[in-house]
Amino acid sequence: MKSAVVQLPGLNRDRDMVDALTKISGHAPVTVWQTETEIPDVDLIVIPGGFSYGDYLRCGAIAARMPVMQAIREKAEQGVKVLGVCNGFQILVEAGLLPGALMRNTSLRFVCKEVLLEVVNADTDFTRAYGQGQVIRCPVAHHDGNYFVDDATLSAMEDKRQIVFRYAGGTNPNGSLSDIAGVINARGNVLGMMPHPENLIEAAHGGTDGRALFASALDVIAA
């Protein structure tokens, strides 16, 4: 499985993501700069975390209007898998590829800690290597991860099992509605999540709970 990592000014988790994808799939991903209008043939496109455009206006708002996002939108329409982590998730909601919005944490503080996540839907292309209802550890590091969506949309999303990860065990770090940590589009090929699975993939990270997400998305046997 081939993958691509998107690079925008201000993103700073791109090298962590390249490292995770390389270690888990055995192949280095291609990197794609924000001005590209075409993306090579890949099975998975990842928008990593960081602070694109300094979080000016709204987190992810300016990045979501860059040329590369139109290319990603076209790939997503063709069924290519797209993963957005942290700022990548904020960019996907700003681009309208995922429902909802990510607002300032209710604490008004930047949170950098480990949380627990429940795998609410293990029947997606990103989570099938997890067990349904499995609780995993995962780091978070963000200032604006407070997921909001209107009631009608939330209820439709729940019907379609679009909530993929929820903060578990009272670890909601940001006031997210319904403890939502990660959501998928109705078609099931675009996933956004605030936590950083790429930072928990090897013993040196203190755990490997994030590995199964990439193993699922890259279609490799979980190690």
Partner: peptide, 9 residues
Amino acid sequence: EKLLANTVI
């Protein structure tokens, strides 16, 4: 509509 406001919120 395109940039200045996020009409979701």
